[in-house]
Amino acid sequence: MAASDFSRLIAAAADTIAAHAEELTALDQAIGDGDHGLNMQRGFEAVRAEADAFAAKSLPDALTAVGTKLVMTVGGASGPLFGTLFMALGRELPPAPDRAALTAALGKAIEAVSARGKSQPGQKTMLDVLQPVYEALAQGKAGTEIAEAADRAADATVPMKALRGRASFLGERSIGHMDAGARSTALLVRAVAETVEGF
């Protein structure tokens, strides 16, 4: 990936998080501690501020740098979880990945996020979006289809009962609300799918 492409990717990710920050916070206020939008926006703006330096690195190093920056700036549990996602992608991806390499790396990254959060798909978390995205990637789906699958997967967290994170304290009362982390994951997936050529 060319440096300019990685810069555009960062801008697209930061833009979509900023545009939806209030929505993410509202989702988190319903069943969490209400800081998800602000936290994610702070993190992605910090990444945006160093976009040029990150984009000058190889793709694996750039992703690792993004992950580390998110860990240090997002705060809350989302920092380590999204940070781990990017750091694991940085660890697993070759400098110029094809679809198969991307799919394999995302699979490993999902395992890393799962270990970090001690969580599995079905527990109303970001994993409930990442797993269908992985499956869509593996099936060779086009970018738009993958983005749609991510949106559907985020919607599908609404009837789930939260088993991890602050929302799990609410038990049955967490049912009926979309998970904020699932929503922000779907936003990021769409940003990537719409930015990367031939995704």
Partner: peptide
Amino acid sequence: LGGAETNSEMAVEM
């Protein structure tokens, strides 16, 4: 709470 645990584990790893 949970986030303190997750962040602490991340800190140890880093």
